[in-house]
Design a protein around this nucleic acid. Sequence first.
DNA 1: GTGGTCTAGACCACC
DNA 2: GTGGTCTAGACCACG
Lengths: 124, 124, 124, 124
Amino acid sequence: MILLDYRDKRPIYEQIVDKLERLIVGGGLEANYKMPSVRSLAMELSVNPNTIQRAYADLEQNGYIYTVSGRGSFVAHECEWRSGKLAELTKNLEEVLLKAKEAGMTMEETIEVVRKTFKEAGDD
Amino acid sequence: MILLDYRDKRPIYEQIVDKLERLIVGGGLEANYKMPSVRSLAMELSVNPNTIQRAYADLEQNGYIYTVSGRGSFVAHECEWRSGKLAELTKNLEEVLLKAKEAGMTMEETIEVVRKTFKEAGDD
Amino acid sequence: MILLDYRDKRPIYEQIVDKLERLIVGGGLEANYKMPSVRSLAMELSVNPNTIQRAYADLEQNGYIYTVSGRGSFVAHECEWRSGKLAELTKNLEEVLLKAKEAGMTMEETIEVVRKTFKEAGDD
Amino acid sequence: MILLDYRDKRPIYEQIVDKLERLIVGGGLEANYKMPSVRSLAMELSVNPNTIQRAYADLEQNGYIYTVSGRGSFVAHECEWRSGKLAELTKNLEEVLLKAKEAGMTMEETIEVVRKTFKEAGDD
DNA sequence: GTGGTCTAGACCACC
DNA sequence: GTGGTCTAGACCACG
């Protein structure tokens, strides 16, 4: 289930993209699984269909789903997005690390945060 | 000096805040150093004074500078922002790490990225 | 409704913040109540929309309301601002009390003022 | 001695007024004591003479000092300002108390703050 | 000259 | 329609 947070500063469509991306990446949705239709998901979340359309467009753009005209949207194969996703994450990580370093965090402190975070997340 | 990127999606004032914050945090500016005046920085960057004012207001709000009406703005003592900044950075880091973990990165891979990033950054 | 006092030395946006804060704190507005839009309140008070925006930004910064771009601003839950507000008030009170003590008011006289003020205010 | 806080948001002249007022009210300066000249106090505090002039004008306006052209300024008799000062303080106190009441503080809690503040101040 | 406030009017993204 | 950002230009208090 997708829960929207209306107090989140990010636009709704971005939250939806984020949630669906996590579902796909996390293995919650298998390859070729049929996504709910734009209209049905819009009804379910009580948002404007345009918003869902925009979210699906973003997901397709980044290779997470593919759309067949008149049939619907489907989850893409892992190979379609795997490498791109890892590159993006590594880039994000590097950015945050550089900021941390600039602010005076040492490599040891940082690695400690990594260990703690992975440990606490466990089998989240 | 500060370079603005007009292709950047972020608002101009946010880019300015970011740049100045890095200068202060990175130690490029000492405590009580006098910041350029709102008007002069606006001229230098070819933006409206209101935009600089907004940036300075943000910096003051977060404790990086203090402002004296009629005299100018000055960088604050480190103790004013140190703890808040570290907490913010740790939070950012944890968020990115959780996403990385969800996408299948292992702790070892992640720590390797940390080592590599700190090494390459050197004494940037 | 809100009445502006143009003879007041304080800036307009501050008067607006003050009035709205009292409405929220005093219980006149429930959590998640939708605030008037920036433009409509600007019309109603005959001030520039930027002035209202500034007031709303202050209220959001202090946790009294939350804003969703494209949807409007809403009053926050009490827990968002309760503790901060009480701390602020206690600080204000202490400052005034110290001045009163310096000027020669005794504790008994001061407590008498408190009793009188609370009594007269009644269930205002 | 007067110490100026350049990080204080209030204008300099107001800080000076405040400090001198406390000195007079607190009994640090006796009636008819000769205040330092505008120019000498300006030198001592390293501020513009206009600033001191403005401060002295405010003090005279509120009855704390009186000025004899060509001879200087002198501390007024207590009877000149006593009642006005008490009225002002009581008004300030009532304002803060009303805000506290609006925010939900009870009379008992408020009186407790009064007791605590007077106790801690002791013979400050 | 400095920051603080306000107005008028504009464009943008989102819904 | 909503808020978010930006510009241009104005006036004020302060030092």
